[in-house]
Nucleic acid binder design. Structure first.
Length: 485
RNA sequence: GCCCUCAUCGUCUAGUGGCCUAGGACGCUGCCCUUUCAAGGCAGAGAUCAGGGGUUCGAAUCCCCUUGAGGGCGCCA
């Protein structure tokens, strides 16, 4: 049996962390088993589905590098021979109606003329009387005359699935092992809405089967939908795919991850300067691990090592602090030209005019590569190369408001002006020499010098920084600092 | 209310009856390196394995109960 998995988002917003994790695990499972990864759009919620959401989801998937083998594509075309891959299009082709009618014919489904208000009331009363708040099945055996009456009054029926009245429905979950539900608890769920559109539990089963999906990997918020779907598979006499329910992702307070925990969409993290590789690596570790508890994975390694057996049953708290640490790790591993490429949008976005760069921008950006944890931190770190030093008050007070500061800066200024060349090694030698001849400790000179030239108490390695700034600019800044002391 | 699921350091986790006086990672603390900040190296604090009962020569690992948390009970997905 060939492995075919799918990610089936409903386009009602951006791709969220939880969705991305589900997509990732499906993708990894497919790659690991040399299977097929399908992307299907479940846009059967007529009110909330939007084309913009579809676009946004595509974008995030692409950013994360989760390329799919079959399904709806960003250019509006489709790839694969099981299409269409958008449920609204499948609806238009009559796919769902066909199977619904078949089930009605065999008595496994029926038309229900109850209005939403009636069903709501039914549930309310049941709940009050401490009975199960489920549909009571009153339309299960409507006579033809009754049906005609309803139709005559203009009532549009929904199609409901007839659940077995007794027995249990269970399955062997690939993550949770045996799970079972008492059929008595299960409701005759809606397959086709009054509008004719399919509801989730129905569309999902029909499509998974028709697309020959071999394994369903989804969040465990779907566990209670599963017995309904299993019964549908059986009614249709279809083979039930492998079922794997992933644990939820929670916020730091232990509740389901949501907006009030901060950024929840993949796009927001991308904007904040997290790398796609970081996100992929971090998300993989939320609910999955190797037996050696490995943290950092090389490119392509997850695809090789992923295994459903390593999946956690319990929910995981999303930890932005660890994510940020990991991003630093990924940034450090970046080749410098790649780093520049990724940093450029942030640099330009900060209004830094890079044309004025005294040395190739790559060099400047790479200067503090080991310190960046977020791409968005880069502009603030390199800004002083491109505009006059803005003196940090604390640093200025501490390093330049000292008895020796004037002497040091003046002396260094002189030494630099007299230098033949202006390379890191020469600058360092001259600076150390100045310190020595004037009986200063190296640090006594270095600190004020750093502040005078960059405005900050911390920064890149001192002499290379000064080299990049250039003699003229360095001297100019020393003069300015002198005038301010 | 009913049903389902889950339960190892603050967090992500390793662990499938003896190798566990419970390992790794993030975070935290200290030291080293060092012109700063980082990075790196080393060391350390941090988990009576939710609690209580069993089973067993032996349990984080198996069984039962309790508690807690999460999810579901839609013509949303």
């Amino acid at each position: 049996m060939s492995i075919r998995v799918r990610f089936a988002p409903s386009p009602t917003g951006h791709l969220h962390i939880g969705g991305a994790r589900t997509a990732l695990f499906n993708y990894l499972f497919a790659r690991k088993h040399k299977g097929v990864f399908v992307l299907r759009i479940e846009d059967t919620d007529e009110d909330r589905s939007t084309g913009d959401s579809v676009k946004s989801i595509f974008e995030s998937m692409k950013w994360l590098g989760l390329d799919w083998d079959e399904g709806a594509m960003p250019d509006g075309a489709e790839k694969g021979s099981f299409g269409p891959y958008i449920q609204s299009a499948r609806y238009a082709a009559g796919t769902y109606r066909k199977y619904a009618e078949e089930l009605i014919k065999t008595g496994k489904a029926y038309k229900c003329y109850c209005t939403e208000a009636e069903v709501d009331e039914m549930r309310r009363v049941a709940s009050l009387e401490k009975r199960l708040p489920k549909y009571d099945g009153r339309c299960r055996s409507l006579t033809e005359t009754r049906k005609k009456e309803f139709e005559a009054r203009g009532r549009k029926p929904v199609v409901r699935f007839r659940m077995p009245d007794d027995g249990c429905t269970g399955w062997t979950d690939l993550i949770h092992n045996e799970v079972k539900f008492d059929n008595k608890l299960l409701s005759d769920f809606v397959m086709l809405k009054a509008s004719g559109y399919p509801a989730y539990n129905f569309a999902c089963v029909i499509d998974d089967r028709l697309m020959e999906i071999s394994h369903i990997i989804r969040g465990d918020d779907h566990i209670s939908n599963t017995p309904l779907q299993v019964n549908l598979y059986r009614a249709l006499d279809w083979r039930i795919p492998g079922l794997a329910h992933l644990s939820m992702i929670l916020g730091p307070d232990g509740t389901r991850l949501s907006k009030r925990h901060g950024a929840t969409s993949v796009g927001e993290y991308a904007k904040q300067g997290y790398l796609a590789g970081t996100m992929k690596n971090y998300l993989a570790l939320l609910g999955w691990s190797t037996t050696d508890s490995r943290q950092l994975f090389e490119e392509g390694e997850l695809e090789e090592k992923f295994d459903l057996k390593g999946c956690q049953k319990s929910p995981a708290v999303f930890d932005p602090v660890k994510l940020t640490w990991m991003n630093g790790e990924y940034i450090r591993k970046l080749p410098r030209d790649k780093l520049l490429e990724l940093a450029l949008p942030y640099i330009k976005g900060a209004g830094i005019s890079v044309e004025k760069s005294p040395v190739p921008l790559t060099e400047i950006v790479a200067l503090e590569q080991e310190k960046y944890r977020l791409l968005s931190e880069i502009p603030a770190k390199i800004e002083f190369f491109f505009s006059d030093a803005k003196y940090d008050e604390t640093a200025f007070a501490k390093m330049l408001k000292t008895p020796d500061a004037k002497k040091i800066l003046a002396g260094i200024k002189e030494a630099y002006s007299a230098l033949g060349g202006f390379k890191e090694a020469e600058i360092e030698a001259a600076t150390r020499n100045f310190a020595k001849t004037n009986a200063f400790k190296a640090a006594q000179v270095f600190h004020p010098l750093r502040v005078a030239v960059s405005g900050r108490a911390e920064g890149p390695t001192l002499f290379r920084m000064i080299e990049y700034l250039g003699r003229e600019e360095s001297v100019k800044r020393l003069e300015k600092a002198l005038s301010l002391i």
